[in-house]
C-alpha cells in the first residue's frame, strides 16, 4: 500500500499489514511510533544514547510480536509505552543512586538574556528535576504532562488504577515544583 495512503490507518491495522509483509506499513509504524518511544525513554533516562537503544529494542519487540498481534487486546501505543517503560526501569535499577550534587544547575546570568535560552534552561531544569523523582512518579508525570496521555491510558500502561495514576502525578508535580522553587529567577518566573 502506498505510504501516503497509510496516514489515516490505525496502528493496529498497520501492524497487521506489516505482519502480512507490507514494507510500507513497517516504514509508517517506524515514523509514527519511534519518536514517541524515544521521547519517553529520553525523559525517563536523561541519556540520549541509552534512549536510542531502548527505542530500538522496544520497536524490535513490536516487530517480533506482530504476527500474533490479533490475539492481543491492548492498543499498540499502550503496549509499546509499557515495554519501553520496563526497559527504562531495568536500566535505571542498574545505575547507582542519583547524586543530588551531580544534577546540573541552570546557568546563572545568561539564562534570562535570550528567550530561547530561557526555554532551553526550563527544559533542562525540568529534566534535572525529573531525574530526582521516583521511577513511578517520573513515568506518570512524563506520560501525563509531556506525552499527553489520559489518566486511563496511563493506567493501562502502568497496569494500575486511575486513582493511583492521579496520586502519582499529583505527588510528582509537587516534587517537581519543590525542586524548581529555588530557580524562579533563573527560569524566568520572577515576574509572575
Amino acid at each position: 500500500m502506498p505510504y501516503d495512503a497509510l496516514s489515516e490507518v490505525t496502528d493496529d491495522a498497520l501492524l497487521v499489514l506489516y505482519a502480512n509483509g507490507d514494507a510500507e506499513a513497517a516504514r509508517a509504524l517506524t515514523l509514527r511510533l519511534t519518536p514517541r518511544v524515544l521521547r519517553l525513554a529520553s525523559r525517563m533516562l536523561g541519556d540520549a544514547a541509552e534512549a536510542e537503544d531502548v527505542a530500538q529494542e522496544a520497536m524490535l519487540r513490536l516487530w517480533r510480536i506482530a504476527a500474533d498481534w490479533r490475539q492481543r487486546k491492548a492498543q499498540v501505543a499502550t503496549w509499546l509505552y509499557r515495554v519501553a517503560s520496563n526497559l527504562c526501569t531495568d536500566r535505571l535499577r542498574q545505575r547507582r543512586p542519583v547524586d543530588l550534587d551531580a544534577v546540573p544547575e541552570v546557568e546563572d546570568g545568561r539564562a534570562s538574556a535570550v528567550e530561547g535560552m530561557i526555554e532551553a534552561d526550563r527544559a533542562r531544569a525540568l529534566q534535572a528535576a525529573l531525574d530526582l523523582l521516583p521511577e513511578r512518579q517520573r513515568q506518570a508525570v512524563i506520560l501525563r504532562h509531556l506525552e499527553g496521555l489520559s489518566n486511563p491510558e496511563i493506567a493501562a500502561v502502568m497496569d494500575i488504577g486511575v486513582e493511583a495514576v492521579e496520586s502519582l502525578t499529583a505527588r510528582g508535580k509537587r516534587a517537581l515544583a519543590a525542586a524548581l522553587a529555588g530557580r524562579r529567577e533563573d527560569l524566568g518566573y520572577g515576574d509572575g
Binding site: 519518536p35 529520553s42 536510542e52 526550563r122 525540568l126 525542586a179 529555588g182 518566573y189
Partner: peptide, 24 residues
C-alpha cells in the same frame, strides 16, 4: 517561591514538549 515554581511548572512542561528529542 513554591507557588511561583508550581505555577511555572506548566511553562516548564511546555518548554520540554517544544524541545522534545527527535529520532535521528
Amino acid at each position: 517561591d513554591f507557588s511561583d515554581a508550581f505555577r511555572g511548572l506548566d511553562a516548564a512542561f511546555a518548554a520540554a514538549r517544544a524541545m522534545a528529542p527527535a529520532p535521528s
